[in-house]
């Protein structure tokens, strides 16, 4: 590991209250959940900060439950929990599908949905799902809570509206009507960072969200509008091309990402258009 430990400090709250107080008094602190991202940075000698807040012990943030028509997911719910959760499988199968494709099981056992949101990588696999599901991020500080629609959460590349004294404590997902669809395209079949990732909901007002094609995860609202108004997927594909701005990087090319994004849109439309009501999400 290329980061010396002695300059680092870890705060270890026993409760959410403690954690929020520490954030208020000692901040800014880097929150630590499953550490699957932060320790990669530490290993490379690029620590994201020197003062960290350990959230892992806060079991109160691990719950997944249904309240009325809303699916409440605690920020510390791991991908393994999400993939196995009956309410998630029933209400948000595209999230269960995304969780199963993140890393290997070791990462699924540690990585959390709150961590995925907080890290805010444009390639975060669960993020298009949350965007397409019109989820709400619950932020809390020592003074109280606020709810931010997921689609207004990010302000730029790895930047969000979260204030330094706030924690992501949960994500709330309203009922999703329509057929859900998810597809991740990585560099290999397992344990890969996405080159393009898409989640879609087929309903009267279809929803389409993508990752790895812009500085943040995006909802393709113009594409959605074309689909809703005309159902013409070729036209929607043209609209999508105006909404994404992929780049060349170590993993892929802008040209490839554009074509694949367009192809996935058509695949989503074809897969969800048939009368067959079985879930199109493959295991």
């Amino acid at each position: 590991m290329r980061t010396p430990l002695s300059p680092l400090r870890l705060f270890e709250p026993r409760s959410l209250r403690d954690a929020l107080r520490l954030l208020a008094d000692e901040g800014p602190l880097v929150p630590l959940a499953g550490c699957t991202d932060v320790y990669v940075s530490l290993n490379a000698g690029a620590p994201p900060g020197t003062r960290f807040l350990n959230l892992w012990a806060l079991d109160e943030l691990r719950r997944i439950e249904v309240r009325g028509s809303t699916l409440m997911i605690g920020a510390l719910a791991t991908y393994t929990q999400l993939a196995r959760s009956k309410p998630v499988q029933a209400r948000l199968p595209m999230l269960a599908a995304a969780a199963r494709e993140i890393g290997g099981i070791q990462i699924q056992n540690r990585g959390t949905i709150g961590g995925n949101i907080g890290t805010g990588s444009p390639a975060g696999d669960s993020l298009p799902v949350l965007a397409a599901a019109a989820a709400v991020v619950v932020l809390q500080n020592a003074r109280g809570r606020r709810q931010v629609p997921f689609n207004r959460f990010y302000t730029g590349y790895r930047a969000s509206v979260r204030r330094p004294d706030e924690l992501i404590v949960a994500v709330e997902v309203p009922a999703v009507d329509g057929r859900q669809w998810f597809r991740k395209v990585g560099t290999r079949a397992a344990q890969a960072i996405s080159k393009v990732v898409m989640a879609g909901v087929r309903a009267d007002r279809p929803r389409v969200a993508l990752g790895s094609v812009a500085p943040t995860v995006i909802r393709a609202t113009r594409t959605e509008a074309v689909l809703a108004e005309t159902g013409d997927v070729a036209e929607a594909r043209r609209a999508l091309m105006t909404e994404i701005a992929p780049i060349d990087d170590l993993r892929s090319t802008a040209a490839y990402r554009r074509r694949v994004a367009g192809n996935l849109l058509e695949r989503f439309w074809a897969d969800t258009g048939i009368a067959d009501r079985r879930s199109p999400i493959a295991d």
Binding site: V40, R188, A189, A190, Q191, A192, I193, L250, R251
Partner: peptide, 27 residues
């Protein structure tokens, strides 16, 4: 099919296992 050393200015730009990929069980 998958293994690719990305050289930029004579330096391996993807010198991490997250970016230089070898086949997993599923590949």
């Amino acid at each position: 099919l998958v293994e690719q050393v990305v050289m930029r200015d004579g330096r391996m730009a993807n010198a991490q296992l997250a970016n230089y990929l070898i086949p997993t069980t599923r590949d």
